[in-house]
Design a protein around this nucleic acid. Structure first.
Lengths: 185, 185
DNA sequence: CATAGATTTTAACCACGGTTAATGATTCCT
DNA sequence: AGGAATCATTAACCGTGGTTAAAATCTATG
């Protein structure tokens, strides 16, 4: 990545332990966070108490609270550290002032958001076109290291299924050869 | 929306009839398109010939071909006019040159991409947290006008289900009172 | 009007994954 | 080490939606 100038802006460094939350809801906390080390999960909690994981955050990942009244109505959003974590916090208000007056920074910002938009695009694709099993296999291929760090429960909630469902899928994919679909002849 | 300056940039006007495609694949076509009038569907076609609809585009909507090697590998992406349509085409290369040199334009661009990112975020939420039936009900509430213009087939492929599945859901939701879940007492 | 084509609905059957609950396996704690 | 708590797996049962194919509608177009 190359958001050079963005990263050189001095933000507040935040240290959190495993199990601690990073609050992003209140106006004063609306910020962009750069993950320096550690591991977090970003998740929704719905009214009926269910949890759905939006993403896991690894070092060099970036997250911000996009304000969307729609989403805020139907769910609440949280960040939880799964390991001791260091973040750099940059309030949107301040960032916004910077980009208003700095061309290079504004272009860095464009690259950054574009990068995030492409991630979302991928995820939309995976939900739209792939089955839960295919999404799991995808993840095994692309982020094998994540599987070791994250509980079955969290992994399932990220894939959009239940832990029970994931357990079943794992069994299936180890027994059955992958891509058994093509077993014509 | 308020991408004032972006919209004042002069792009190439493109006229298409119902049934015509807008090509976005080749490098020379990598552009941002502003829909002025009409209706389009943006969809993926997978290797096994299935179609999945990413979004419908109405007047004032904006679409661009985010280049992602990942997505380009596993599917091909197309735009098809469902009604006679007028678009304004702005090549990314040119746009990029502009934003590199114009602060106001760069900030307009930030607002624009942020706006698109929030849309994606909503859609991710809907796939992650809602059932097909709930997604359908959501759409009925938020975009009733779309339902009249779009075939059952396209609608289903946008919701991530088959036309047969959608037909069943429609039957159910008309028979059964919506939110029958809460019928305690 | 008639026929062909596309679109939608229905039915029958099946696979996937949700739900609940019981059982194992780990980790953690004093 | 014993016990609590968390996490993972398994089994039984069920609901949603996929698949296929047939019937019912709707829409052209000559």
């Amino acid at each position: 990545m190359k958001f050079h100038k963005l990263l050189r802006l001095e933000g507040v460094s935040v240290e959190k332990d495993k199990g601690e939350h990073v609050f992003m809801q209140s106006d004063s906390d609306k910020s962009l966070y750069f993950v320096q080390s550690g591991l977090l999960k970003a998740y929704y909690t719905t009214e009926d108490g269910k949890e759905y994981i939006k993403s896991f955050l690894l070092p060099n990942d970036i997250i911000g609270s996009l304000s969307s009244s729609y989403l805020e109505e139907c769910s609440s959003f949280s960040l939880l550290c799964l390991e001791p974590t260091t973040l750099v916090k940059m309030p949107f208000r301040r960032l916004y002032e910077y980009t208003k007056g700095d061309l290079e920074l504004a272009n860095n910002m464009i690259d950054l958001i574009l990068h995030l938009a492409i991630k979302k695009e991928k995820r939309e694709y995976e939900f739209l076109c792939l089955s839960a099993e295919e999404r799991f296999c995808m993840l095994v291929k692309t982020s094998p290291s994540l599987l070791e760090k994250v509980t079955q429960n969290d992994l399932a909630r990220y894939l959009g299924i239940t832990p029970v469902g994931l357990s079943r899928i794992k069994k299936r994919t180890h027994t059955r050869p992958i891509n058994a679909k093509q077993t014509a002849l």
